[in-house]
């Protein structure tokens, strides 16, 4: 009896030990699969395309990893296809932009020639109007192409920010001076509150220029009816605020949420790509800055770049 009980215990112990070992191995394999998947997820943005290889005795685990590998393979193939498609898109955009430049140069040039002839009084007034319209549309086309191109550059990560100490006082002065002739001719009231003392911001100069230019362009293009343009530089404890104010039609609360989204424009159809503010906010956020809008429609609208 004792012998019998003894051998039973031994057998049970052996079975127990064997099962423990199997269980431990299984645990190890599952843990390995988990860690491997975590590593592959981490590396999914890179070129590394790894698989899960588990030389397991367990049929279930083997099938599980086979399924996982199948899934990974599909994912990698699609990733590669996506990369290809994106590169092709970028290349196409570059080509389009390049191929449109030459005909646009000619279009723009001759519209200017027509306008010039018109000013000399050698053509009928209605022809002058037509020339003006062609010239404006040519400008718009140039701007639109430029915006699509910039947007794609930002989205593909080709726009590399160069963060430096930038004299934003001087930058504001020089940017607004670029508009001197346009604003004086259109008899704008221009209010500049940018103190002479230099204020520096750690930022990308090109990006800040681009953003402010977009804000001023918008104030003139969409808020031009108010014939007012204000630019203010405020140096506060929590940062630098550059405000551009117009007294035009303004932006309703409903539009306020949407003006920063792609291709949304409050202007009549066909007057702009609607990408300007998307680009501006995108660039601002990449620098760790932001853009705010405040509008009392018909009274005043203020766009603020917070650096």
């Amino acid at each position: 009896m004792a012998v019998w009980l003894g051998s039973l215990s031994l057998v049970l112990l052996a079975v127990y030990v064997r099962e423990r070992i199997i269980n431990r191995n299984l645990n190890k394999e599952v843990l390995y699969i988990r860690e491997r998947l975590a590593a592959l997820t981490e590396a999914s943005g890179t070129r590394e395309n790894g698989y899960v290889l588990v030389p397991s005795g367990n049929v279930g685990v083997r099938e599980l990893s086979a399924q996982l590998n199948h899934l990974l393979e599909t994912f990698y193939r699609q990733k590669a296809e996506y990369q290809c498609a994106r590169q092709a898109m970028e290349q196409m955009l570059t080509n389009i932009s390049h191929d449109l430049r030459t005909p646009l140069t000619v279009l723009k040039g001759y519209s200017e020639l027509l306008l010039k002839e018109g000013k000399r009084g050698t053509s009928l007034p209605e022809f002058r109007d037509m020339a003006k319209k062609i010239d404006r549309k040519a400008d718009e086309l140039v701007r639109t192409i430029d915006e699509y191109f910039t947007m794609s550059k930002i989205e593909s990560g080709d726009w590399k920010l160069v963060m430096r100490r930038v004299n934003v006082t001087q930058l504001c002065h020089e940017l607004i001076l670029d508009y001197y002739d346009v604003l004086e001719e259109a008899q704008y009231e221009v209010a500049i509150q940018v103190d002479d003392m230099p204020v520096y911001a750690y930022s990308d100069e090109e990006a800040v220029k681009r953003i402010l230019k977009n804000m001023i362009d918008n104030a003139v293009r969409h808020g031009g009816s108010g014939k007012y343009l204000g630019i203010r530089l405020k140096y506060l404890a929590d940062g630098i605020r550059i405000e551009v104010e117009d007294h035009g039609a303004g932006i309703t609360a409903k539009d306020e949420e949407q003006i920063f989204s792609r291709n949304y424009t409050t202007a009549r159809k066909g007057t702009g790509s609607g990408l300007g503010l998307t680009i501006a906010r995108n660039l601002a956020r990449q620098m760790g800055a932001d853009i705010e809008v405040y509008s009392e429609p018909g009274i005043r609208t203020v766009f603020t770049l917070i650096l």
């Binding site: 006082t169 001087q170 002065h173 020089e174 001076l177 001197y180 002479d196 003392m197 230099p198």
Partner: peptide
């Protein structure tokens, strides 16, 4: 061509402008 005071000062005096209006 418009010259900001900053740019004019820097080009003539060859030193940065600190509001030396």
């Amino acid at each position: 061509q418009a010259f900001s005071k900053e740019r004019l000062y820097e080009l003539i005096w060859k030193e940065p402008y600190f509001g030396n209006e």
